[in-house]
Design a protein around this nucleic acid. Structure first.
Lengths: 340, 340
DNA sequence: CGTTGCTACACAAACGTTTGTGTAGTTTAG
DNA sequence: CTAAACTACACAAACGTTTGTGTAGCAACG
């Protein structure tokens, strides 16, 4: 900047303001500055700007992990929206550990991020580490896995609706004894999916049966274990709705190992619309989570928040509508190819 | 820091040096400073430090995309190693576009990253945008997809060896007319995989046949298309080795659709050891890429480079050894469960 | 004619660190 | 006993921006 100023015979103030399109700089001067900046290949030092302004063009994201389909896709959406708004994204993984989550939040704050986007770790039960974010006036948005009680800004999927759709679909296929593989109840997403399952049953006048609801961490192994447990029940079941695709995959593998036909004997439906749902045999019915939309929505929310830095807090929540992808694992009597 | 200095009646210099364990500060003073820093919950502003030192604790990573298994796992490895060394990681996607790759590199440099780790976009053919990185003295490490001719630091998989192992394995199973689904030849990885395939054939005295080598972008659709093309050949083939798992998946789907048995009629082997290789029926033989090791190695290389900032350039390359996971798609006559 | 409100710019103080240089006093080596 | 080396700290200048305040000229308004 000093070079530019010297070259044009103006002050650095003028340069700075010309580059940031300040109103008090004349159009002619702005043009001259921009042109020379191009010519000298001026590279702004964002660090210095961030230091001065106390705010960078970095957006911090904390997710439990980045494997599978969901989080990479959400991050994808975040990146896209963020870069459109001139922000770069810095991603941290909590590995489902609240301690790491805390450390990550610290790190991001120290990097002077302009905002923090968080999806909670599985074992996060207290939320004090987010107080610091708010007290520094840094916009904070939760997505997918959000704190249960707190007044927070968030974007979530309508998990209840998704589960309801999936379960209703199974009911429409004629299934009546439908089991549910549930996830940890303290996470909002699993709680809502369970509720959707129950609501769908209730709509058909079916009383919930505790034996048919199995709670676990929803890994493939958990799903397999749960399936074996369900098969051991005196009265046979005719469908399983799992709150995650990995679990339903485990269930499918057990069923195939035992020669039980899917969907004729037992129909299956999962949640997340993972890539592999279109690969298994039969292909797996699943609820799509609108991953990229979620990322975009989170960024939009962040932008709104940072546009009005010290507006009084109003809770904002964006709720996305899920979409059920019906595939072979739940279509009674019909053999069909492809998704949707 | 000013608070600390006032409280302890020393200068800010002393505070700074105590915190960074400078030798010229007495042990007693250091203790007092550290203790008070804890007590006052002092949070260092890394931005200011970065500005002053002209270098941050951020590590920039540019990858083509973050879907599938490979890149997320590499990033995982990078994150782990980086955070161990006190660095945070900022990830950008080039979406296989050289323009975006260029922009990303600019962005990272402007964020004053301490180093840049890159895996090239598919259509990157010139490498001028990396000159700026070097000229700023920022350590630069390529991984997996690296420039062909340039003198660069890199960590790669021994792709040739992996392809050789896979092809040799198919030969050992008795296959003799083995097709190869190849990727864009200007990318080192696909070039080496093709070479490994050729070398394995040569070792068995088999002359390469141009009809059996089909080059594409290696998507699932490409794989399906290629498979159909191969099936139309007058003389039938007995195996396919693809340079990527998506392509081999497409091939598998075509074969199953036509009732051709795998591996009895045609054996299959892929590359990347994607998650779905253990899910398909039959499960797919594939070459594992040591993703996380690659990430760790890249960070290690970066750390070495930044330890000796203006040492004369010596080209360094870390080559990781792949591992073949033999599964059902290539095991003639044997039916077995599980990986490895 | 005095006030207000523009346009167009410059001065200089921040932002929170790091670090070269300086200055004592104390120890060690020859 | 003197020079060199070390310990322990302080001063103040950076790093590259942004921004509140100031100033000066000029037009418009009542």
């Amino acid at each position: 900047m000093a070079d530019l100023a010297r070259e044009l015979g103006v002050s650095m103030t003028t340069i700075s303001r010309a580059l940031s399109d300040h109103h008090s700089i004349g159009a002619a001067t702005k043009q001259r500055v921009l042109k020379l900046a191009k010519k000298l290949n001026y590279q702004p030092n964002h660090l210095a700007a961030a230091l001065r302004k106390g705010q960078s063009r970095l957006l911090g994201v904390v997710v439990p992990y980045i494997e599978g389909k969901f989080f990479p896709s959400v991050i994808q959406g975040i990146e896209q929206a963020a870069s459109k708004a001139g922000f770069s994204v810095i991603v941290c993984q909590s590995h489902e550990e609240v301690q790491l989550e805390r450390r990550n939040v610290e790190t991001l704050l120290n990097a002077q991020v302009a905002g923090v986007l968080v999806s909670l770790a599985r074992n996060t039960q207290d939320f004090y580490h987010f107080d610091k974010v708010r007290s520094r006036g840094v916009p904070l948005v939760f997505f997918d896995r959000i704190p249960p009680t707190e007044q927070v800004n968030s974007v979530v999927l309508n998990d209840r609706e998704g589960a309801l759709q999936a379960t209703r679909h199974l009911l429409e296929q004629g299934c009546r004894r439908i089991a549910h593989l549930a996830g940890p109840a303290h996470l909002n997403i699993y709680q809502h999916r369970r509720q959707g399952y129950l609501d769908a049953l209730a709509a058909y006048g079916i009383a919930p049966n505790a034996d048919l609801i199995i709670t676990s961490d929803m890994t493939t192994d958990d799903g397999a274990r749960a399936m074996r447990q369900l098969l051991a029940l005196p009265e046979p079941i005719d469908a399983v709705f799992a709150a995650g695709d990995s679990a339903i995959l485990g269930a499918l593998q057990v069923l195939k190992g035992q020669g039980i036909r899917v969907p004729q004997d037992i129909a299956l439906a999962g949640f997340s619309n993972e890539g592999f749902t279109a690969i298994t045999e039969p292909q797996l019915t699943s609820v799509d989570q609108r991953c990229e939309e979620m990322g975009e929505a989170a960024v939009r929310l962040f932008l709104e928040l940072s546009a009005a830095p010290d507006a009084p807090f109003v809770q904002r929540q964006v709720v996305l509508q899920p979409e059920l992808f019906v595939r072979e694992s739940s279509r009674q009597g019909v053999l069909s190819l492809g998704g949707r």
